[in-house]
Design a protein around this nucleic acid. Structure first.
Length: 270
DNA sequence: GCTGCATGATGAA
DNA sequence: TCATCCTGCAGCA
């Protein structure tokens, strides 16, 4: 679930459901009890997504920081929520909705200086208001200074904030870039295209709540909504299978300690 | 029931 | 590069 699109989607949905009314806040699991106590009965004024981070501003000035990490998950219920599971770190309850957070890497109160430091370390967020020129310039600047593979750079949140391991493989495929290309050998045109594709894809992900990068005509259906579960990606986790574009066998390698999949024919021929 | 793996990130070595 | 933290689930006995 959790790449940048999930975070922005949650910010949007939770804003609709929770902002502006007093909430019952608790930590059924107990690991955030003190924090929950400090928030209980107060209301959220603002929820700000940045890359994979969520920052909640409360009416009494408290700041809540949530990062889902690899396992974190929000579960939201409109009417009668089931009892929270044992692992529920944070429960937010309004009159009409309940959200349970489990498995986050971070769920903690912080101050403005700490928040600002986190934000300062992040590259442009494709779902926030940054101009394309600024973003491309930032990425170009960063990539030009390194010779490590572009696939490693793409997981670095300082380069682009919000890309994770699924989008990494898919975006490199969609832009025809070989994942092993040294960062400083990626052309300006490719960087501009990579950014545009990133914005496009994360917007689709934010709206649909899932990562779907394939186009209907490439997976044998008419409409995007008909795309089957196993057909949502061009290369991610498809090692040994045929490329949906050219039929070449998809390959896998590792970069930045995580798996990357790519098509040796569609990527890196330029 | 147990094992391994996963859309993440950090700090030590 | 490795170990570590966070949870859930598929696959297997």
């Amino acid at each position: 679930m959790p790449e940048g699109h999930t975070i922005h989607r949650q910010a949007r949905l939770q804003t609709e459901r929770f902002v502006g009314e007093p909430l019952a806040v608790s930590s059924p699991q107990g690991r955030f009890s003190l924090g929950a106590e400090a928030l209980d009965g107060h209301s959220i004024e603002d929820i700000e997504p940045r890359g994979k981070h969520l920052f909640y501003t409360w009416d009494h000035g408290q700041l809540l920081h949530v990062h889902l990490g690899l396992f974190g998950r929000f579960r939201t219920y409109r009417d009668d929520p089931p009892p929270p599971t044992e692992g529920t770190r944070l429960a937010l309850r309004s009159n009409t909705a309940t959200t349970y957070l489990s498995g986050p890497t971070i769920c903690a109160l912080l101050d403005e200086a700490q928040r600002d430091r986190i934000i300062a370390r992040l590259g442009p967020d494709p779902l926030s208001t940054v101009t394309d020129d600024e973003a491309v310039r930032h990425i170009e600047d960063y990539l030009s200074r390194r010779s490590s593979p572009v696939s490693a750079a793409l997981l670095d949140q300082q380069v682009i904030a919000g890309i994770g391991n699924v989008y990494r493989s898919e975006l490199l495929f969609l832009t025809g870039i070989d994942p092993r290309t040294p960062s400083n050998k990626v052309s300006s045109e490719q960087i501009a295209e990579l950014w545009a594709e990133t914005v496009r894809q994360l917007r689709v992900g934010e709206r649909s709540g899932r990562i779907v990068t394939t186009r209907p005509e490439h997976v044998g259906v008419r409409r995007r909504s008909d795309i089957r579960r196993g057909d949502r990606a061009y290369v991610y986790k498809r090692q040994g299978e045929a490329c949906r574009m050219c039929g070449t066998t998809i390959r896998m390698t590792e970069a930045a300690g995580r798996k990357v999949w790519w098509c040796p024919e569609c990527q890196g021929k330029s």
